[in-house]
Amino acid sequence: MKLVIVNGSPKRKLSNTSKLLEGFVAGYEENRNCVFELFSVRDFEDQTNLSQMINKADYILLAFPLYTNAMQGRVKRFLEMLTLLSQTSKESNPKLLFLIQSGFPEALHSRVVERYLEKLCKRLNCEYMGTIIRGGIDTINQSLPSFLSGRVICFFQNQMKKIGKKFGETGELDQKLLKQIAFPEKLPWIVILFFKIYAFFGVHYFGFDSVLKENNMWSNRDATPYV
């Protein structure tokens, strides 16, 4: 099985998207005859490499961070280049799967664009294999001390590893594992309650405040430079 992974994050290897991909790849590679190649979406700024990449892929995994409720402009530009797939048959086209990573913890922020991706596959004559959704890594980095956030991210990577392993075995994304990694779909009431109590005391600002203070910008945090 030949898998091509395209990372849509502008931060490439330093990105949260990349951390999740590491887990996926670790599981996927445990299978025999499962090979992969990793690209950045920025490797396809012009069409030259694209056909070559498409020709060697049985599957393409496009992974990207959620920017303002959808794929980033840069990722949309890449999708527009994939239009060439609509000229060829479904049998010869690679199958597509996706990973969406969002700053907010709830999966619901990514669900609408998931519907877009499924419809997109129909347009491109490609089989849609599903979408892995994991939110909250930025929130965790902001709100937990690094030894704890590291552990939580490790936990997500292990979930990704299971998904990758199963994918290598079966050529499919396991629906049960997708549901597990997407948790929570929306914020549980208890979290909302705690958030509101924290917000009342202003404690939920702690993560951003410490970064702003480090940068000597805390007093300037409410700046409105454009009016």
């Binding site: 959808a70 794929m71 980033q72 402009g73 840069r74 949309k76 530009r77 999708l79 527009e80 239009t83 877009y116 419809k119 997109l120 347009r123 491109l124």
Partner: peptide, 10 residues
């Protein structure tokens, strides 16, 4: 492809 242009999204 069923969505406004990349230019607009940027």
């Amino acid at each position: 492809l069923g969505f406004p242009s990349a230019l607009l999204k940027t």
